[in-house]
Design a protein around this nucleic acid. Sequence first.
DNA 1: GCCTAACCGAGACGGTACGTCCGGTCTTTTT
DNA 2: AAAAAGACCGGACGTACCGTCTCGGTTAGGC
Lengths: 213, 213, 213, 213
Amino acid sequence: MDDSSVVGRGSRRVGRGGRQRDDTRDADILDATLEVLAEVGYERMTMNAVAARAHAGKATVYRRWESKPQLVLDAFRHMGRHTAKIEQPPDTGSLREDLRAMFKPDSIEEKQRKLSVTKGLLSMASQDLEVAEITNAVCIEPWATAFREMIDRAIARGEMADDVDLNMLSRLIPSLAAYRALVEGKSVDRPFLLDMVDKLLLPAAGVAPPASD
Amino acid sequence: MDDSSVVGRGSRRVGRGGRQRDDTRDADILDATLEVLAEVGYERMTMNAVAARAHAGKATVYRRWESKPQLVLDAFRHMGRHTAKIEQPPDTGSLREDLRAMFKPDSIEEKQRKLSVTKGLLSMASQDLEVAEITNAVCIEPWATAFREMIDRAIARGEMADDVDLNMLSRLIPSLAAYRALVEGKSVDRPFLLDMVDKLLLPAAGVAPPASD
Amino acid sequence: MDDSSVVGRGSRRVGRGGRQRDDTRDADILDATLEVLAEVGYERMTMNAVAARAHAGKATVYRRWESKPQLVLDAFRHMGRHTAKIEQPPDTGSLREDLRAMFKPDSIEEKQRKLSVTKGLLSMASQDLEVAEITNAVCIEPWATAFREMIDRAIARGEMADDVDLNMLSRLIPSLAAYRALVEGKSVDRPFLLDMVDKLLLPAAGVAPPASD
Amino acid sequence: MDDSSVVGRGSRRVGRGGRQRDDTRDADILDATLEVLAEVGYERMTMNAVAARAHAGKATVYRRWESKPQLVLDAFRHMGRHTAKIEQPPDTGSLREDLRAMFKPDSIEEKQRKLSVTKGLLSMASQDLEVAEITNAVCIEPWATAFREMIDRAIARGEMADDVDLNMLSRLIPSLAAYRALVEGKSVDRPFLLDMVDKLLLPAAGVAPPASD
DNA sequence: GCCTAACCGAGACGGTACGTCCGGTCTTTTT
DNA sequence: AAAAAGACCGGACGTACCGTCTCGGTTAGGC
């Protein structure tokens, strides 16, 4: 996700004169947004509170973001930048073990935190197509990318056939996890994830499950 | 879903005198709510607009629902009452044909309409546990129930093993469809649905796909 | 000045239904305006402060007045309604004694209070033609009217010629008093007023001053 | 009016090094102030607009004047420097002719321009004693001084008695003219001015009007 | 001729008031 | 007493302005 896809951001001036926009204010404001958002939720979050928390004037906020939803959107994207890059899918030599390694307790914890953010994302602007892209890019696609890589390796090893639908397969677990967390309101814990691996993903991939679990 | 579980509804008067509450206004207001909701989304939907659309006064609305979220909630529940009961899963003697029959074009069209409303629901579901339940009950469970019944019949016919996770299997397609529609923003069309059947559901269920498609 | 000449007032609704506008709020808001105005001046008076002082919402204020200047304008007019009608020019049988009777200490005190209001009036919108009319109607014209009546009686008594310019003569003292108060910043006290009578008004009217003062 | 009495002016630097302040910018900024002031009035005049009109930066303005009111104040004073010295009261040998000579059409035109600015001044004068002094010095006293000189000469010629109140008499016409222009909103034209001469000033001065006009 | 410091235009900055809009309550008239 | 209509209070939104500060660039001295 490069900056060219960023939406809702006020564009920089083109003229040369004048004081330069202080880019460090961006992060301050986005952090303040996330703080206030976490404390009172989207509806009760006010732009005044965000500006005050960031020791900024409202004009400084509105010079960079056109509206409240766009600020919040960018705040989520900002959080994504912190956490999106740490995924390094494990490579154990077996698809099943790769998957199980991905669902080690500490790793799950972080994913759950990200999912709780997704709730905030969805709460603001389902009407807005943009929010869907952000949700996807920040919260779902990193998972899918990791799964895709593990499946690719499994195919290369001859562990499974190569005629599978990679897009569908790699999004299987993220989709079911999102459904469980957001709609069913249940937690996405390790047993659930491992169940999906053995009962859905591996069968659909044509990989025989181990004799005994 | 009986009325005793309804939340946010103002209770009827106990006294005997005076004009009786006109119960036909409920449906008008709920319909108006759904209309406005579909047009502008939850955030930009105003109670004034709903009341005006229903040719009702705001007091009439607030006499029946305590707040905006509760009105919207009940509107979704109202929609569910219209559409939740019409699913009669087809019975063709084969799981694959049952599923393909379910995804006939006219049936899909109606499901997509429902999905567009689900977007509005989801924007609230993430904040409110109860809304999540409603979303599930209205938009997802009817599908899941139909799938469950078809899978049950397939098991009874000996078409597939009985050691599958029914909960997981029956929610596979609704979850992926919701993900595709809400997060990816793509349409849930017939090819996609049939792909899910052949590439995910049937393999995961242990049913061999047909030799040729 | 009847209400038809009132400017800047939001007009009443025409439809029949709905809650009636509470006319008692007008006076509350205007009184609050005058209070805040007296405490901090026009520039530092805020609409929020006025609304809070009147225990009103901002919408209630803006439903009745379009803007801050128009509210302040009407507040001055409101004050005028309280004080404009008490002028009953004295009738002693002599123009000079009439004038001296008008400038009894207690009467002067009230006029000075009104002049201090005129300062506020002028401070807001000299650009606005409307404010000039209000200033004139509330603060100046009542004097001029009284003088005009006294001069009329003097002419009727044969005390002076009838070929004078009444408009000019009746505004002589108000003009000089306003100049002294607003531009010179000096107080309009009894000696100054009596000086104007004997040294300007009576000579210009062609009435001989008394032999000794 | 020397510079020592100037208020609100930022003082020059004391250090020796560095670029010298460009004094020609002062006049540009003051002229721009007067232009904007004349177009939109004090309230709607913005410092940005003034700076832009003068092709100056806001810092350049604020380096020289502490605040908006002080800039406007100095702008009026600036205008006074242009026009205050050109009054050379005519000397015809008769008070009446002196006065009529003063009100030649071209002279009146310039006075009316000054009056239109006086409106802006008055809107501040009422709040600030110092502005009142400036208003007086710039807009009123030049007239009064000229009248005083003409009356002095008339007394010296024996044309009128010497027991008049010079202060009052010399400010008679400026006061009434200001009242007419600012409060009544009428134009101060030649007939009005000549009327004041014949019907107020000359009678009050004890000078007999000419037999026929 | 070069260095330094203050100047310049331009405009971002913090703060605050403006006028609009909305949620939820209350009042008036009509049914 | 419920209905439609809409005024009411409170408060958030997004805009505009004031006075300050910062930016890159220019223009005086002093060496």
